[in-house]
Design a protein around this nucleic acid. Structure first.
Lengths: 191, 191
DNA sequence: GTCGGATTATTTGATGCCAAATGAGAGGGC
DNA sequence: GCCCTCTCATTTGGCATCAAATAATCCGAC
């Protein structure tokens, strides 16, 4: 069978053989695996269709989106909404600022904080870009009815909520005793 | 309302106000947005729970997984299954090889190709790691029944299939006339 | 055999990404 | 005023990521 992509059925067959000896949470595994396949495929399509002509990355677009919807906002809030770390946002904001799409302003009452907002160019870009972006969202979801889309969104929301509510505690419990080697990547501890 | 994360309802209200003038594919937008929220949340949880003690990244684990399930395989095939580009795989394989988890071997009949496989250490790691990983997959999916997991997986598969079957053509149609500025990142054209 | 096009994996260059460290400011206690 | 602690954003370090360029090899035509 060389030279061909494996089908889902083949993969699941192979998994079954390999994992015959394990107690396996099959359905949950399928859900998690497909979340990532779908996320990567959708992201790639959107970057290479709607976003490519404007030379925006996925994350850059999400940040613009958040500012478009919410208006001026503090950086920590933008990072939260966009689902990225504060450190990552600093970099994204820098590149968007360099392209005159985003403006950075000091908080009037607190010198530590920074406010982000769209420039007029950024607003204009989003007004032109959003319809195209939304059309591609509709394209990727073509096989699903509107109701199925909502069902899908609800299932995914439940997973996000589960992690927001219980994820941290779970990780604490799991990793408590184990004395953890530091992450291989990331800034080194001074110790 | 400062200092608090916005709820889904608040976000959708704001979106509605901002986008009142646009024709909006609402359900499809919700589905796409939540795919990414969920993917990021799940990935983060799995990296910080099951994978952290072994200092593996998500992608590193996926590559090991593919090799565990399929056995020795060619690099293009591993990249395809793992959902990453060939170039990325080269790097991942290098780090996994340096950690003695993966072996690289020349193809017996074709000097251009390379075969990857798990080392005994890699096999042993996966046998210990997989049950823990699967337990966390089950944890993130706690709010969903087994049937709901399958429904979710099916919906996501349909999206992946849509893009595999029609994505490239769609992109070609969309970007045909427009003369595209080169990507900002990536190796520069010699021109 | 050797040239040339096709098909591989790898390298390159720029950005994305996280977590930990750092720097800069706020605010209370004295 | 001067600490001390808390809370921000930013910097840093290491890996991940893609697309295009390059290098290595194969294979058919001649």
């Amino acid at each position: 069978m060389p030279g061909r992509r494996r089908s889902i059925a083949e993969t699941e067959q192979a998994v079954q053989e390999r994992l015959g000896g394990f107690e396996l949470q099959r359905e949950q595994m399928a859900a998690v695996a497909n979340i990532h396949r779908a996320a990567a495929a959708v992201r790639q399509h959107l970057e290479n269709s709607a976003l490519r002509p404007h030379d925006l990355t996925w994350t850059g677009f999400v940040v613009l989106w958040v500012l478009w919807i919410w208006g001026e906002a503090e950086t920590w809030s933008v990072a939260e909404e966009a689902g990225i770390s504060k450190g990552t946002l600093t970099g994204i904001a820098r590149t968007l600022e360099a392209r005159q799409l985003v403006a950075r302003a000091p908080h009037p009452e607190d010198g530590r904080r920074v406010l982000l907002s769209l420039t007029p160019e950024g607003e204009e870009l989003m007004e032109r870009l959003f319809p195209a972006f939304n059309a591609e969202e509709a394209f990727v979801a073509t096989p699903l009815s509107a109701e199925e889309c909502l069902r899908l969104a609800n299932g995914l929301r439940a997973i996000v909520a589960q992690l927001e509510e219980h994820g941290e505690e779970r990780r604490r419990q799991l990793l408590d005793g184990t004395d953890l080697a530091p992450r291989r990547s990331g800034r080194r501890s001074r110790r």
